[in-house]
Design a binder for these strands. Structure first.
Lengths: 108, 108
DNA sequence: CCCCGTTGTTTTTCTCCTTGTATAACGATG
DNA sequence: CATCGTTATACAAGGAGAAAAACAACGGGG
């Protein structure tokens, strides 16, 4: 029996960024395309692209630099805003984990 | 844009207690029956009863004293173990809320 | 002995979400 | 100019989960 927690960012009651988008962005960064990242995560391309699009719209920032066509077909890279967001979220998540676990231990 | 969080208790990867069961238990305490509590929460009776049953099984404690039949048809009351669990969870949740919001403010 | 509103189980139905598929545009390379 | 693997959109198909419904058992009171 142990503590469990989840943190995300919301706006007007709508979840706009959390673990899912974060993991997807990291995979895109390492693999170079939305398509391969979605496959690697066992997620359909449709879902991946909708996730990215809705996040971009909700946060009002561009997360990816897309390129279509070319020898390799194209690909996507994270913008600096996306990297900053991922970084902040990671720190937010990690600090919360430590805090929540400590609180749990003190109560249960 | 604001912090959002959720805490629960899990065991072997399975979520065994969280906001949902806590809210349901509180409603049962105030209304006196699983049925009326489920209705008040816009939840189906089937879901409510499964939620209670799975929580009792996972935690190994009895949450409700059920009575079937009688003039009023019966009803359910919380056991002292259930009240203790709800109380601990409330403190766990509230302390976590404060901690997580503070962390969010310091990072974003 | 019947009525009532519970608890509890089971089965059916439905709805939402996800996946899958088809289609199109793109552009560097050979 | 044909090829290739992307991005991107639209729509059909499928499945998982929840709700709904049906049914039985219970027991105090009229």
């Amino acid at each position: 029996m142990q503590a469990a927690w989840k943190v995300w960012i919301q706006h007007e009651g709508e979840k706009i960024f959390g673990q899912g988008p974060r993991d997807l962005l990291l995979k895109i960064e390492s693999l170079g395309s939305i398509n391969s990242a979605a496959k690697a995560m066992g997620m359909s391309y449709s879902k991946a692209i909708k996730l990215i699009a809705s996040t971009e719209k909700a946060m009002g920032i561009t997360l990816l630099e897309r390129s279509i066509g070319g020898t390799e077909g194209g690909g996507s890279k994270l913008t600096s805003e996306a990297r900053d967001l991922v970084d902040r979220y990671n720190r937010y998540e990690e600090a919360s984990r430590e805090a929540v676990e400590a609180i749990y231990q003190s109560i249960f």
